[in-house]
């Protein structure tokens, strides 16, 4: 069944039998993982399960020891972060990819500025696009947030919104969110979840990593549970309720088995 999925035209990316070790530590022990087109996958599991390591292989930070990656049906190797972005894979980390003391418009266009052929910035154009991203794409309504706002003055949830909005604007096909709600208040977390729903509405795909199922469940279409370097279970949202999923996770943590 997994083989069939991999060759499906609906599959955006698939990782096959991925193994990764750091020195003697086997962190990923042959993981199969795929994301469909316009699908939000919740990647859950305890701390240290290997979630971040798995997605860092997709973003070009780590190279796998074994295994293959297919993107839009083609076998690829992702040797650098730049390559992964070229393919249309963007990662949103907690606060990491923003320059705090700079304005919103500089952050949105960081590394991909709109310039004339002498390299001078088309500031008005960048501001106008930023305004569109803020109001239309991300649905910011607060008058206090403008294209000229300094990022430091935003809340944690708003910052994640900017990072997601930036990824959408540049037409990423796959947006990876690694614990995007870590350290955020409940209200802020809700905002981030709304941004994730926005990814779905825009027709794009996402991997949403969290160890909190209550955040993942409402926004994801499918769940993959990672446990000590192995996939311990996969469920479509239609197959499982939130409570059942939580129960399975608890049992997994206690006994090392799903059922």
């Amino acid at each position: 069944m997994r083989m069939a999925e991999r060759n499906n035209a609906q599959t955006l990316v698939s990782m096959v039998e991925i193994q990764k070790s750091f020195g003697k530590v086997n962190v990923l022990k042959g993981v199969n993982f795929e994301v469909g087109k316009n699908e939000i996958v919740g990647l859950v599991g305890d701390n240290g399960a290997g979630k971040s390591t798995l997605i860092k292989i997709l973003t070009g930070v780590h190279q796998p020891n074994e295994g293959e990656i297919y993107f839009k049906g083609e076998k690829i190797t992702i040797h650098s972060v730049a390559r992964s972005r070229e393919l249309g894979i963007e990662t949103v980390y907690q606060e990491q990819a923003l320059s705090e003391q700079q304005t919103m418009w500089r952050n949105i266009f960081m590394g991909r500025e709109i310039t004339n052929r002498f390299g001078f910035l088309k500031v008005e154009e960048e501001k106008k696009e930023t305004e569109d991203i803020l109001r239309k794409q991300m649905g910011f309504t607060s008058k206090a947030i403008t294209t000229d706002s300094i990022v430091k003055s935003l809340s944690g949830g708003e910052k994640q919104g900017i990072a997601i909005g930036r990824a959408l604007y540049f037409n990423a096909d796959l947006i990876i969110l690694d614990e995007p709600t870590m350290g955020l208040s409940l209200a802020e977390t809700r905002k981030v979840l709304d941004f994730v729903k926005n990814i779905k509405e825009k027709g794009k795909s996402a991997i949403f990593i969290s160890h909190n199922i209550y955040y993942v469940y409402p926004v994801a279409d499918r769940f993959v549970i990672l446990d000590r370097g192995n996939v311990a279970g996969r469920f479509l949202k239609a197959e499982i309720t939130q409570d059942e999923l939580v129960e399975k996770m608890v049992r997994l943590a206690k006994t090392g088995k799903m059922s």
């Binding site: 972060v81 972005r85 990662t91 990491q96 990819a97 320059s99 700079q102 500089r106 960081m110």
Partner: peptide
């Protein structure tokens, strides 16, 4: 203020890691 190079100088000085991740 108005050139890509100057913008990159600001971004590199502000947050080196994020500038690198964004392809600068």
């Amino acid at each position: 203020k108005r050139h890509r190079f100057g913008g990159h100088v600001l971004l590199v000085g502000d947050n080196f890691e994020s500038a690198r991740m964004m392809g600068i």
